[in-house]
């Protein structure tokens, strides 16, 4: 018996899976310029901080290319900071803001914002929705 005959099928399966995931990684809509917040910000309640920190060009006599943070205003404007954009996913009919979870999730950042991730959630966590209760927004 040759050892290669044992390993080669497993290696082939691995390479096929990796190639499939790499292809999806490269050509997925998210990578092709899709906004992380495919759910419109107007659809959801904005986090408090986002309404507090709006970005406007600084008023200055000196030419400047760097935008500065203006004084807090009460006017809710769409934020220009990408990091402030929420990532909303749907699980079992409810919507969750997983923006902060993307960094702390023990399984890594698997979230595809704006999609229904019920089946992915159930495959990992079953029906234990309590574990994401604190991220529920509607």
């Amino acid at each position: 018996m040759n050892l290669r005959s044992i390993l080669t099928p497993a290696f082939s399966a691995f390479l096929i899976t990796v190639m499939a995931s790499v292809t999806l990684n490269i050509f997925s809509p998210q990578q092709a310029g899709r906004d992380d917040t495919s759910v419109e910000t107007s659809d959801i309640p904005m986090p408090t901080q986002a309404t507090d920190l709006t970005v406007t060009p600084s008023v200055s006599t000196k030419p400047s290319t760097t935008p500065s943070v203006a004084k807090p205003t009460a006017t809710p404007k769409a934020t220009a900071r990408p990091t402030a954009k929420p990532c909303i996913v749907t699980v079992n009919g409810s919507r969750y803001d997983v923006t902060s979870l993307r960094k702390s999730h023990s399984g890594g950042n698997i979230f595809v914002c704006g999609t229904n991730m019920t089946s992915t959630f159930q495959s990992m966590h079953g029906n234990d929705y309590n574990i994401i209760r604190k991220y529920k927004i509607s």
Binding site: I6, F14, L24, Q30, N109, T120
Partner: peptide, 30 residues
């Protein structure tokens, strides 16, 4: 022999982990 079998087992472990997350693009990176 055991090393090769173990290698095949672990390759299939990683392959099936990735396959479970497909078509999520993050399956590869995770």
């Amino acid at each position: 022999l055991v090393g090769t079998l173990a290698g095949a087992g672990i390759l299939l472990h990683v392959s099936s982990l990735i396959a479970r997350l497909l078509p999520l693009p993050s399956a590869f990176t995770l």
